[in-house]
């Protein structure tokens, strides 16, 4: 029973035991914390994928990513009060994609030619707008959101409850989150590396003028990038909300970890986002367990130190490619 409690509680609030024994004396605690770290890391990874996607396809860093994801999750919640899970989920993805594309068209297109700073400022505007709107529409109280029972045609999977191997447990929801992260990464990899659309998007991000010259509809590529990213963000939101509940602050709280994950892996690498997310998740959980409780909570400090350290050693992340300087 205790192990179950640990697995369920261990997603975002790192469980701090009073005097944790060193890993070699209690290997199952260590394994449990690593596993819980992977669980929360998967959440960071999905949001990081959305960040990477926008950066890769439009060269813009979206500080509104977390809030957009939160907003679309609220939309999903509203749909779910009206219809079954799957239609609601896919409808949400559609709405999110449309919203992302519309935002690109309306507010980012006008600052496209301006310095990077202007686009970053616009996304910060999106950040406060979506927080404010969600607060206005759905109120400050948290909403109940899952864990859901997934109804596949021939079988059902209930995401509530843990899967255990010996003493070590992990929530089914976490497994599903991890699987979702890997699926999204694989899809993005195929998109960027194996399709004409992905190639055109990469070209657009790298050099707009040259892309226009070879006939790529640059504007449409940017809209597609934002739309896809908003949809990935919506998936992230749906999983985060099942783990920590749905409220206006639930994604803002993990945005810093998603950024840390994206930076660690390199802002333009989907694989890096996953590796970065899992690393941040595990390191954060281990620090939460083994740093003496007198020091206080250190989860943010760990993320911050990782970001600073990575940027000092490898300014474009572990998997990121060195940016060419344009004159």
């Amino acid at each position: 029973m205790e192990a179950i409690g640990l697995a369920v509680a261990g997603y975002l609030d790192v469980v701090v035991l009073s005097t944790p024994p060193p890993p070699w004396e209690d290997p199952s605690l260590f394994a449990q914390q690593v596993l819980s770290g992977i669980a929360s890391g998967s959440l960071f990874a999905i949001l990081a994928l959305a960040v990477v996607l926008i950066y890769r396809s439009t060269d813009v860093l979206n500080f509104g990513q977390g809030e957009m994801a939160m907003f679309t999750t609220f939309i999903a919640w509203s749909f779910m009060t009206q219809m079954p899970l799957w239609p609601a989920f896919f409808l949400t993805l559609l709405v999110a994609a449309a919203m992302g594309a519309a935002l690109e068209r309306l507010v980012l297109r006008p600052v496209e030619e301006a310095p990077v700073l202007n686009a970053v400022i616009v996304t910060l505007g999106l950040y406060t707008i979506f927080t404010g709107l969600a607060l206005r529409v759905w109120g400050p109280l948290p909403k109940g959101f899952g864990p859901f029972t997934l109804d596949f045609l021939f079988f059902e999977i209930d995401l509530a409850g843990p899967v255990c191997a010996g003493e070590v447990c992990i929530g089914k929801l976490s497994v599903a989150t991890f699987v979702a992260a890997v699926i999204i990464m694989a899809l993005l990899f195929v998109l960027f590396q194996r399709t004409m659309l992905g190639l055109a998007m990469r070209a657009t991000a790298q050099n707009r003028t040259a892309s226009r010259l070879v006939g790529i509809p640059v504007g449409r590529m940017l809209s597609v990038g934002w739309g896809l990213s908003a949809a990935v963000g919506a998936v992230a939101g749906v999983f985060v909300a099942q783990n920590v509940g749905l409220s206006t602050g639930s994604l803002a709280a993990i945005l810093i970890f998603a950024f840390a994950a994206a930076v660690l892996g390199g802002l333009d690498s989907p694989v890096g986002a996953i590796v970065g997310g899992l690393t941040i998740g595990v390191v954060r959980n281990l620090a939460g367990t083994y740093v003496p409780s007198e020091v206080g909570s250190v989860d943010l400090v760990v993320a911050f130190l990782l970001i600073v350290l990575v940027l000092m050693v490898r300014p474009t992340g572990i998997f990121g490619r060195r940016a060419l300087r344009r004159v």
Binding site: G132, L135, R136
Partner: peptide, 14 residues
């Protein structure tokens, strides 16, 4: 409040 600040940022920026 947030919507006002954000809109202000975006409108002025554009």
């Amino acid at each position: 409040r947030g919507v006002i600040y954000g809109s202000l940022l975006i409108v002025v920026m554009i």
